[in-house]
Design a protein around this nucleic acid. Sequence first.
DNA 1: CAAAAGCATTTAGCTGGCTAAATATATTAT
DNA 2: ATAATATATTTAGCCAGCTAAATGCTTTTG
Lengths: 147, 147
Amino acid sequence: MRQTSDIREMTGYALAKVCKAHRSSVGELLGRIGLHAGQEMVLVELWRQDRLRVCELAGRLGVEPPTATRMIQRLEGCGLVVRQRDPDDARSFRVSLTEKGRSLEESVTRCWNEVEEKAFAGISQEECRGLRDLLTRIRNNLETGMG
Amino acid sequence: MRQTSDIREMTGYALAKVCKAHRSSVGELLGRIGLHAGQEMVLVELWRQDRLRVCELAGRLGVEPPTATRMIQRLEGCGLVVRQRDPDDARSFRVSLTEKGRSLEESVTRCWNEVEEKAFAGISQEECRGLRDLLTRIRNNLETGMG
DNA sequence: CAAAAGCATTTAGCTGGCTAAATATATTAT
DNA sequence: ATAATATATTTAGCCAGCTAAATGCTTTTG
């Protein structure tokens, strides 16, 4: 059994605390280039593949459509992305990077790398790989059978 | 070097995704007992030690004081906690659990245990312990030298 | 071909997070 | 004692998340 009466002893609790620290660290660095924590994820997806629909973006980000809509509106307000009607489906919009949005890739990656360096200092490549594998398994466990 | 040009390959990225899934899973179960994700953390701290000041609570939760203030206001609105002036310091409030707040411990713990079971299915006690150790080291890395 | 069902997006309103700034009390230094 | 500084809390306003519900277009069905 994995039952515990103290939430603070659970592995999920440790996970949540680490994640908060990570997001906070990334957020601080992103703030210097005018982004809020979470916004860079939209850019990450668009750097990989441009002209995504709002719902595709929401799916890849793992957020609900209304969340994606508002993030896109704000990123559009900052001039990082543009929305264009989909010629094949009048319901959809295609979200594309602007030159300004594309140009942020390097600095955002630098922010993430900096946090990565700090977070995993003193942790071997071996341990990191094992960790990533474990995290993948956990994520699969959590995401199967819902959403 | 740990440098990568693709954020999606970073361990921190895997961490963030797992954490989102975890919070989402916990949040779904908490919703059934009338709580939002994150609110249970306030209760966790108060179950451990009651009559904490707002700033102590913020410190233990790892959030800023204004965030703690509003969470407490809402929990007070739900009748789960009460604020009482600190007799020794007129600036401070002491936050205490109500009977209703105290009574939630069992069901909140059940929610977390349920997610724990699901998240770590097929993962040994050994692996879990190693994971917790690693997460502790990462958290220490991230939290030293800031906030 | 018209009605029904489904899908993409948005709006409204709630919550947890943040920073900056205001308020009030304590403490410390002069 | 008074002034300056520090601390505790709150307010206002921003952002990322969510759900429920509205809108408008597509597709399917009868």
